[in-house]
Design a protein around this nucleic acid. Structure first.
Lengths: 232, 232
DNA sequence: ATCCGGCTGTGATATCCATCACACTCGCGT
DNA sequence: ACGCGAGTGTGATGGATATCACAGCCGGAT
């Protein structure tokens, strides 16, 4: 395996792990394994025994999903490089409640449970960072629940798109080229209706297509819709 | 104000704050205020500036709710004594995203932001406790999202009831005597339909009534419904 | 080139549920 | 006792959306 300096270099500047002091971070990295994933490969399965490791996403993309009674997939979240996945299972005992799957070619770091917890505990700063991250997720999920309960299809899909725009680029391209089925599973509506909405928005110039991929043209409109619903 | 030993005594044995060492805990308590709330009194309003304090529930009950575009109330959660509320706003910057309201006569402790963070930082054990608590919430919310997306009214209400049974008592009484409107706001369905389901379940002997209050008779049935939906 | 599988468009239909409307009950204050 | 307000029961209706059915469509594998 390559040196850990390489890995270190790849850590995003705003990464959670960056909150660690160099010394403990190195110790942690020395105990972790790197793993490459092909699209569709899953790294954690729903129902697995409680987690033996946390997953740190170096490059590529992951989706966190559950299959519900009835066999429909629900995509709870997408993850971009620099994010940490699976700590919930570390902290909260019990089996994994969701599956983690690569959506593109992906490289992850597997951090052994105990080493991870020990390391985080060495520094107040890093603990606060993890706390903040969890808090951010709770808030994000509150919004999803609110959105699911009160909004119709349009605003829900709008929210999904806004969550998926690639913040690193100024064009309106989406992360991970999701299919319409994926968008449906993410936004909570049927694939057919994603299709209908996309057509409608395309004709209004809100979004455009490049091949199968979508490009957001009028981000502001979608954000308004996502926040205020159909009354906007 | 009474001595803090009194307060200390009231802390539930499994309370989050119990994870603190006696010394820092006392320091924290010395900086906190106690406050009594009548039913319906709100302590944090949606849209308030970022939190100046965390709320620790000594006795009584709180609900965390948002009012959505369209004016409908969504009850995100109920809190029982021993729980900590509002840390999300402490950690995650930005205005409060939800309101916190007493549902019965309630006593809370107001912990100033900085003092709370400092104190938690003094002990690894207490930090882990807070981490665990946040993780538990994320998991709980995942279930809500899954339930909202895939289940029909029956299972959703069943889940709400299961979440509300008073675990301290062996009878099937609910916490905080919620009205049918409350149950609707909690489970995500219209009040009228709560009424219809309650009638149906009563006639099947799944639940019973004592005045306006509900009593769960067949907990197992409701748990099955909550987990597997109508196919159960 | 061709075939095949996964993705996509689009209408018709069925279902679930929110909403509206109104009657009823029960406690409570006057 | 009365009336009032909050909570509740129940039918009728409409609307939103999942589902079904099927027809292109495009890209990759053979």
């Amino acid at each position: 395996m390559e040196t850990f300096d390489d890995v270190l270099e790849k850590l995003a500047p705003d990464s959670l792990l960056r909150a660690l002091e160099p010394e403990p971070l190195n110790a942690l990295l020395r105990q972790s394994r790197k793993r490459d994933l092909k699209p569709g490969e899953t790294i954690i399965n729903q129902g697995d025994e409680k987690g033996a490791f946390a997953v740190y996403l170096l490059s590529g993309g992951l989706k966190i999903s559950v299959v519900s009674a009835g066999g429909r997939e629900i995509i709870l979240n997408y993850c971009a490089p620099g994010e940490l996945v699976g700590e919930i299972a570390l902290l909260d005992s019990g089996p994994r409640t969701a599956a983690v799957t690569a959506v593109v070619d992906t490289t992850v770091l597997l951090l052994p449970t105990q080493a991870f917890l020990d390391t985080v505990a060495t520094s107040t700063k890093s603990m606060i960072a993890v706390l903040r991250e969890l808090a951010r997720r709770v808030r994000e999920q509150n919004l999803v629940i609110e959105s699911d309960r009160t909004f119709s299809m349009g605003p829900r899909l709008a929210r999904a798109l806004v969550r998926l725009v690639d913040a690193d680029r100024d064009d309106g391209r989406l992360l991970f080229n999701p299919s319409q089925s994926d968008l449906g599973a993410f936004a909570g509506l049927a694939r057919e209706n994603v299709s209908r909405l996309v057509s409608e928005w395309e004709s209004q110039g809100v979004i455009a297509r490049e091949g199968r991929a979508l490009v957001i043209r009028d981000m502001e409109y979608l954000e308004l819709l996502a926040e205020f619903g159909d009354e906007a």
